[in-house]
Amino acid sequence: MHKTMIQSQTHSYPIYIGEGIRYGINDLLQKSYSSVFVITDEHVAAIYLDDLVQSLDHPRIFTEIIPAGEASKNMEAYHQLQTKAIQNGLDRKSLILALGGGVVGDLAGFVAATFLRGIDYIQIPTTILAHDSSVGGKVAINHQLGKNLIGSFYSPQMVIYDVETLSTLPTKEWRSGYAEIMKEALIANPILFQELLETKLTKVQNEALIAHLKKGVQIKGHIVEQDEQENGIRMYLNLGHTFGHALETLLGYGKLTHGEAVAIGLLFALHVSEKHLSSELPMDAFYNWMVQNDYPIMEVSLSVEQIIQTMKKDKKTSHQVIQMVLLEEVGKPLAVKIDDHHMRVYIESFLSLYSSLLR
């Protein structure tokens, strides 16, 4: 079992990565809690909820199962979970366990952050994608006008990452998760980036998976420790997300997985970096990696103006000017403000470049 410590502004917390560690959660708990509230989704519950409940030695365990998918990360689900917490008699000494992917982690974390002004929670990710969202304390729900617009910074007590739970993931979830590892490599680790370019996702073994997850977590942890509130370099973790979030919003949450949208956003960020900064980047190599691993390049035709206006709702936007994370080279990110005229040119050239590949 690998252990990495993350230092937040309020406390330090461990990230455990290993095989079969979900069965030993009780031994990892560092406090005694009055009750435990497990939040998960319907897909994960059918496979892993019993394992978790049986591993806990506690007289007051409550569970709530939400529909699977990004569409559940909304105000209605948030209110329902708050109601269940009140009805179950949770207090300030209670614990919330977020068992699932990024949707469950974001939603359950936001419930924990706001119930009685904040109670403890633990992230138990069951997707590769959630290696990113479970670290760093960003919790949120979506609004129909934009992704993650309602949320908070609230760090977990720990992250327990049992890679055995990843064996049941469909292929699209492997694509989704590895897009975020690729993002972390692009902003901070050129060697990892080259290694990932040679990785066929359908052939990854647990040893390599654990190594990739550990490197991704360490990259994110190092950045978060320096800038927890996203006032500076933490913004770099949004590489690919400005365009990716716009796609998710315009297409409807769930049409693409988050990571699939981010992968397209990464391709777009490389394109803009080459145009705007005259950078020389491995765009063709990254695109070929996407094709070899069956990433969707685009889903439907969207108007350039729709995309621009949706990108302006991104959290990094200031004074209605889009700000994107770009790359001078692999491992050297920077944030750049781009006016509407130039953004329109970049989107049009990007869509034209890949028009024959739209599907």
Rank of each mutant, 00 (worst) to 15 (best):
Arg92Gln: 13
Asp50Met: 11
Leu116Gly: 05
Ala85Lys: 04
Leu28Pro: 02
Gln87Cys: 14
Thr83Asp: 14
Pro59Tyr: 10
Ile65Leu: 03
Ile124Ser: 05
Asp41His: 09
Val111Thr: 01
Gly105Ile: 03
Ala68Ser: 15
Glu64Val: 06
Ala113Cys: 04
Gly101Leu: 13
Thr40Arg: 10
Asp27Cys: 06
Phe62Tyr: 15
Leu145Ile: 04
Arg60Trp: 12
Ile141Asn: 00
Ala45Leu: 11
Val135Gln: 03
Thr63Gly: 06
Gln87Leu: 15
Leu116Glu: 12
Gln30His: 02
Gly105Leu: 04
Ile39Tyr: 01
Ala112Ser: 05
His58Trp: 04
Leu52Gly: 05
Phe110Arg: 01
Asp132Trp: 03
Leu90Ile: 11
Gly69Val: 12
Ile39His: 00
Ala130Trp: 10
Ala68His: 06
Val53Arg: 14
Val104Pro: 02
Ala46Asp: 13
Asp91Phe: 05
Arg60Ser: 13
Gly105Ser: 11
Pro125Gln: 10
Leu95Ala: 08
Gln144Met: 11
Leu95Asp: 02
Asp50Ile: 11
Pro59Leu: 09
Val103Ala: 12
Thr127Ile: 10
Val104Lys: 13
Pro125His: 13
Val38Trp: 07
Met75Gly: 00
Gly105Asn: 09
Gly136Asn: 00
Leu99Lys: 09
Gly136Ile: 02
Arg92Gly: 10
Leu90Gln: 09
Gly102Asn: 07
Gln54Ser: 12
Ser133Val: 00
Gly102Lys: 13
Asn88Ile: 13
Ala113Tyr: 02
Leu90Met: 12
Ile122Asp: 03
Leu28Asp: 05
Val103Leu: 07
Gly89Asp: 12
Gly69Ser: 12
Gln54Arg: 15
Ile122Phe: 06
Ile39Phe: 00
Gly69Glu: 08
Arg60Gly: 01
Ile47Ser: 09
Val53Pro: 05
Val139Glu: 05
Lys84Gly: 05
Gln144Glu: 14
Val38Cys: 11
Gln123Ala: 13
Asp106Arg: 04
Ser34Pro: 14
Val104Ile: 15
Ile124Tyr: 02
Ala140Met: 01
Ile128Gly: 01
Lys84Arg: 15
Ser55Tyr: 06
Leu145Thr: 09
Ser133Gln: 02
Thr114Phe: 03
Phe110Thr: 00
Asn74Glu: 06
Met75Ser: 03
Lys84Val: 13
Leu99Phe: 07
Gln80Trp: 10
Ser55Asp: 03
Tyr48Ser: 12
Tyr121Pro: 01
Ala140Thr: 01
Gln30Val: 08
Leu28Tyr: 04
Ile47Arg: 11
Lys93Pro: 07
Phe62Val: 08
Phe110His: 01
Val135His: 06
Lys138Asn: 03
Gly100Cys: 13
Ile39Glu: 00
Thr40Lys: 14
Tyr121Phe: 15
Thr114Glu: 04
Ser134Ile: 01
Val36Tyr: 03
Lys84Tyr: 15
Asp120Ala: 14
Asp41Phe: 07
Gly69Ala: 08
Glu42Cys: 12
Glu70His: 07
His143Cys: 01
